[in-house]
Design a binder for these strands. Structure first.
Length: 222
DNA sequence: TGCCAGGCCGGGT
DNA sequence: ACCCGGCATGGC
């Protein structure tokens, strides 16, 4: 049985409506948020971003010039603040030193090339890279996160031990290469994951995908 | 109180 | 090629 990708997408869209996702007033802000939200709730990320906004630091050159210790204190509410300050700095070095601080210039680079460049930055892994490419750059790459694997794993559509690349290819291979749809689909998966597919226990009652569950209810990892 | 949140790295087998 | 500890704040 092949995964009913389009069916899942349609149901989520009907149930929840368009998510108009990834709050951020600019591509740069979205990019910063992608790093800050690593394994962290968005509410905490917003506090950190608010701190940066208050100091007028949501601009590449300005943030690049902030001393590391100062950056650490500003983003502290987002957690992992020391390592994330270093990761932001690494990313800013790519943006400023290679692209002159121009987001527009950065996104002139082709999707596969820019993806590799981002992955070459210490602290930018596949999900963060894809989030930047899709949500800041509007480029058609599918973002996989913990919810994606959990929702599809519990329905038996993918293996629980499938790695990032496998899951990504599962989606990209079964859908048209459309950035707006990738954007919406991932946002909907986070929505249904948060509300109906927590780590501790699945809340399958009233889930828009409930009747697509396999016999015997949701699957669990070994 | 303890568990969890929109990961990723580096060192050890 | 895996496996695992470390990283840190705030909400429920």
């Amino acid at each position: 049985m092949t995964t009913p990708l389009r069916e899942v997408y349609q149901r989520l869209l009907v149930a929840y409506g368009p998510q108009s996702w990834w709050p951020g007033d600019s591509p740069f802000e979205v990019m910063i948020g992608a790093v800050l939200t690593q394994n962290t709730s968005w509410a905490n990320v917003e506090r950190a971003i608010d701190n940066l906004r208050r100091e007028d630091l949501l601009e590449p050159q300005a943030l690049y010039r902030v001393p590391l210790e100062e950056l650490e204190e500003l983003i502290r509410p987002a957690g992992y603040y020391r390592i994330k300050a270093r990761r932001l700095r690494n990313l800013l070095e790519l943006l400023v030193e290679r692209y002159g601080g121009s987001i527009e210039a950065m996104f002139q680079t082709s999707l596969p090339e820019l993806r590799e460049e981002l992955l070459g930055v210490s602290g930018i892994g596949p999900e963060t890279a894809d989030s930047i490419l899709l949500y800041a750059g509007g480029l058609p790459t599918f973002v996989v996160d913990a919810y994606t694997g959990r929702v599809f794993g519990r329905h038996g559509w993918i293996a629980f031990d499938a790695d990032y690349q496998e899951i990504k290819e599962h989606f990209e291979g079964g859908l048209p290469r459309d950035a707006a749809m990738f954007n919406e689909f991932h946002a909907l998966l986070v929505r249904v994951g948060k509300e109906r597919c927590r780590k501790k226990a699945p809340l399958c009652k009233d889930c828009p995908l409930a009747d697509l569950l396999p016999e015997g209810g949701p699957r669990e990892p070994e």
